[in-house]
Design a protein around this nucleic acid. Sequence first.
DNA 1: TGTATTTAGGACAAAATACTCTTATATATT
DNA 2: AATATATAAGAGTATTTTGTCCTAAATACA
Lengths: 145, 145
Amino acid sequence: MRVISKSGEYGLRALMYMVAHREEGVFVSIRDMAEHLDISFHFLTKILQSLTQAGLLKSYRGPNGGVAFNISPEKVLLSDVVRILEGDDFFDKCLLGLPGCGKLAPCPMHNIWKEIKGALKHEFETTSMAELGQAALLNRIGLVS
Amino acid sequence: MRVISKSGEYGLRALMYMVAHREEGVFVSIRDMAEHLDISFHFLTKILQSLTQAGLLKSYRGPNGGVAFNISPEKVLLSDVVRILEGDDFFDKCLLGLPGCGKLAPCPMHNIWKEIKGALKHEFETTSMAELGQAALLNRIGLVS
DNA sequence: TGTATTTAGGACAAAATACTCTTATATATT
DNA sequence: AATATATAAGAGTATTTTGTCCTAAATACA
């Protein structure tokens, strides 16, 4: 069961790493993150670029450059990140992939899925990246392999 | 958010169709299902083959051939089907894709995901294909486009 | 027996996702 | 100014998933 794509997974892990390792006013090197998290550097760069373009991160080129939160991680919700990385309709998909599925024309699994999806959405909308980064700090091995 | 692959979706829709349209002792034509459900015939054939090989369906070749339940659909759980079509570890995946994630070495999202995944698993393990097929019978448009 | 029909099974093609590589651009340091 | 370092951006490659096509095997019926 793959709920989040590789891009999404890598992006989330990087953000958690950033929360866990950031220092005030310092940009975090993408190369360092890629190495520590065992993610392809170029691939991670692209993923973080999309977060930068979305305004969630800011970046800085050159020596000691990197990326940093443009919005305080306390205010960045898990749901915000997945909406950027997985698409704005992340929480709106029918389990059977039927485009017309909805309240008026529910698929046979609509009601089952509505509950689960609602719970997932609620969790994602009440969990900040700051909380997840803190959790990563506690269980040190929580972000890699 | 794609929880179930296309193969899984198609297989489930076909099984629901079979429940909704079956007659005692009659095999359901795969071609008919493919047309009614707007699924590639050859692709659907392969998916149903794997269900046949798993013993969930039985098949019959030649005129008036097709597939039929080998196990009463009341006894076939949604979880059985997804385990066959999506892999036996369907309910055991870390949300961040970390192989080592578990109770001893939880990723930062482990506890959040554990709850949601548990609820999903419970629903899937208490819902039979017979129930879903009945639901499909009620809302006629529930299986296509 | 011959023909039509239907699933079985494998090879192949297309599309989507995941990953790599190269060049451009911005910045710091010497 | 020159060089080193870092992200930006786009082209290109690899892998996986999805979908197509062709041939074989089983069955019914004329």
